[in-house]
Design a protein around this nucleic acid. Structure first.
Lengths: 247, 247
DNA sequence: TGGGAAGGTCCCATTGAACGGAAGCGGGGG
DNA sequence: CCCCCGCTTCCGTTCAATGGGACCTTCCCA
């Protein structure tokens, strides 16, 4: 069918290659990488060599391959999250200090909350939200805060396509959650992600009152004091919004 | 000369394309991107469309193009700096709180210090060290701390190839700086980067006493109190080293 | 209101870069 | 010693990538 037997372009292959690395990193064998990416060994070998030549991949110990520093550099010096992160960091630190809890910052991408930054307290509760990790909208307070503060049209789109693989929750449940979140101005989710934790998130709004990001905390169930958490988060979220608008 | 008139592979072009974005981001026009990358407009157009299809690039307002969220995600969930960053963040925050100064974390890459993370105090002195930014070894305290704690062979390599474009400092000056840094266990650079600031950096050492990273602060000239800064940095650096070793 | 410049998109013949099977290499384990 | 299993290199085939040119907007200025 093509120069490539599988009919995909070089771009496709490169993406498959870098996407083939699992979260935990730590370098893969060439053959394992080839398998994960679904590419012939020879092709993988050639592409890896080229990418490594640019420093996008690096040779690890024992002939293994891992993502390279140069790739990290290229992406992180021009990332679309830079401005957001810079605006948010000081406030996230404040929250972490004052509330003594894990803090996270997320944006919406394709009906999932994508976590842009996270500060974890040393001995704090487990926090599923990895940096650059994702969570479905309907099971993360961040996701709810983000979707609940979007155009009605977008929300409807979301509900229309909504389907829970486990079938535990229906569109109506989610509609309720979103309505509650929009009404209250913050999202809360108790023991959904993790039975012993509670997630709270507030939106960071632009001038049009649409969420461009969400700011959240994950706290142990027993330590819940909404009265203390929500106002602090909202204050911080407004601070972030202001700095975003300024820049 | 080739399928491509310029004799470079698709990989080359893609790298040129994403490397063409300047630090400040904010989206480029297609034609500007083409020019910066040194690619024909048509080719740029095609590649951009493909990359955008994977979310590696995104359409900005007014037909402009910018790096995409998906690219950020792919790279940051598997980056080689993840472990380092995770180990270092809590200590960096401590330093920032206790010393009330800008803190930065760097690694060595090709005779330059590559800044992996930075925490800036709100109204603090200007800090040249952007996240994902670089500084030559001989004019950054981070760079000196990193090179001063490497194999003798590597240091020699560095000195051999050393050439200051401005001709202000010679290899012997640098040798002196490195020796002093190695002897003292920390690097200091007064008013080099910025006339009103002082940079201090300590190495984060592995079991073999080689620097895998550097931890530094940038402080206003007048506030200099080495006695206070250096021990705090060294303590933090050891903490980071320990956490790295554990993981 | 019309003309023209600038930026983006589409078309399509040409061609060499990309492909990947096969064969070579190397080390470690039996 | 030999075999196995990964990585590397070779090389003939082929079609994906290429980019000049034409076309289409949109915007600005006369």
């Amino acid at each position: 069918m093509a120069n490539s037997a599988s009919g995909d372009s070089v771009v496709d292959r490169i993406v498959r290659l870098i996407a083939a690395f699992p979260q935990d990193v730590h370098a893969l064998q060439l053959s394992e990488l080839a398998e994960r990416a679904g590419l012939p060994l020879t092709t993988t070998h050639r592409l890896v060599r080229q990418l490594a030549g640019h420093g996008l991949l690096e040779a690890g110990p024992g002939g293994s391959v891992r993502p390279g520093l140069r790739l990290w550099e290229l992406v992180n010096r021009t990332s679309p999250t830079l401005a957001l992160r810079q605006a948010a960091m000081p406030f996230m630190e404040d929250i972490q200090q004052v509330l003594n809890q894990n803090v996270n910052l997320a944006v919406l991408d394709g009906w999932e909350a994508l976590f842009v930054e996270r500060l974890s307290r040393r001995g704090s509760v487990a926090n599923r939200a990895q940096v650059a990790g994702r969570m479905p909208v309907h099971i993360s307070s961040a996701g709810l805060a983000l979707v609940a503060h979007q155009d009605k049209a977008l929300q409807q789109q979301y509900l229309d396509q909504f389907a829970d693989p486990d079938g535990k929750v229906g569109p109506d449940d989610v509609r309720g959650l979103l309505a509650e979140t929009a009404h209250q101005g913050f999202a809360q989710l108790k023991g959904v992600v993790d039975p012993d934790t509670w997630g709270i998130a507030v939106p960071v709004l632009n001038r049009r009152q649409r969420a461009v990001a969400s700011l959240g905390v994950v706290v142990p169930l027993r330590e819940m004091r909404l009265q203390a958490l929500v106002p602090a988060l909202q204050t911080a979220a407004r601070g972030i919004a202001r700095r975003l608008a300024d820049s």
